[in-house]
Simulated assay, not measured.
Amino acid sequence: MTSLSPHPLLATALELGPRLSARSAEFESARRLPPDVVAELTRAGFFRMLIPEAYGGLELHPALSFQVIEALSRADGAAGWCAMIGASTGLATAWLTDAVAREVFSSPDVITGGVAAPLGRAERVEGGYRVTGRWPWASAGHHCHWLVGGAVVTEGGNPRFVREGIPETRLLFFPAEAVTLHDTWFSMGLCGTGSGDMEVKDVFVREDHAFSLLMPPRITRPLYGFPFGLLSHAIPAVALGIARRAIDELITLARQKTVLAERRLLAARPSVQEAVAEADAEVRAARAFLLEVIHATFDEATKGPVSMRARADLRLAATHGTRAATRAVDRVYEAAGGPAVFHTNALQRCFRDIHTATQHAMVARPLLEITGGVLLGFDPPLPTL
Rank of each mutant, 00 (worst) to 15 (best):
10 L>A: 11
13 A>L: 08
14 L>Y: 00
23 R>E: 05
25 A>Q: 14
34 P>H: 00
47 F>S: 02
66 F>S: 11
68 V>H: 10
68 V>Y: 10
73 S>L: 07
78 A>L: 00
79 A>G: 03
81 W>D: 05
84 M>S: 15
87 A>C: 12
89 T>I: 10
96 L>N: 04
99 A>R: 15
103 E>V: 03
107 S>H: 12
109 D>M: 03
113 G>W: 04
118 P>Q: 03
121 R>L: 12
122 A>E: 02
125 V>K: 07
126 E>P: 02
130 R>W: 03
135 W>K: 15
135 W>H: 15
146 W>S: 13
148 V>W: 08
160 R>H: 00
166 I>T: 13
171 L>G: 12
173 F>V: 13
174 F>I: 11
185 W>F: 13
186 F>L: 11
198 M>S: 09
200 V>L: 10
207 E>V: 03
207 E>D: 13
213 L>A: 11
214 L>Q: 11
215 M>N: 15
215 M>A: 14
216 P>G: 10
226 F>C: 08
227 P>I: 02
229 G>D: 11
235 I>D: 06
236 P>W: 01
238 V>I: 15
259 V>D: 06
263 R>M: 07
266 L>H: 06
270 P>H: 05
270 P>Y: 06
271 S>N: 10
277 A>P: 04
290 L>G: 04
293 V>P: 05
294 I>S: 04
301 A>H: 07
305 P>S: 12
308 M>L: 14
314 L>T: 02
321 G>C: 07
322 T>Q: 12
332 V>I: 01
335 A>S: 04
338 G>T: 06
339 P>D: 09
341 V>C: 03
346 A>W: 03
348 Q>R: 15
348 Q>W: 07
349 R>N: 08
349 R>S: 09
351 F>T: 01
356 T>R: 08
359 Q>L: 15
359 Q>G: 03
369 E>I: 00
370 I>Q: 07
372 G>C: 01
376 L>G: 01
376 L>P: 00
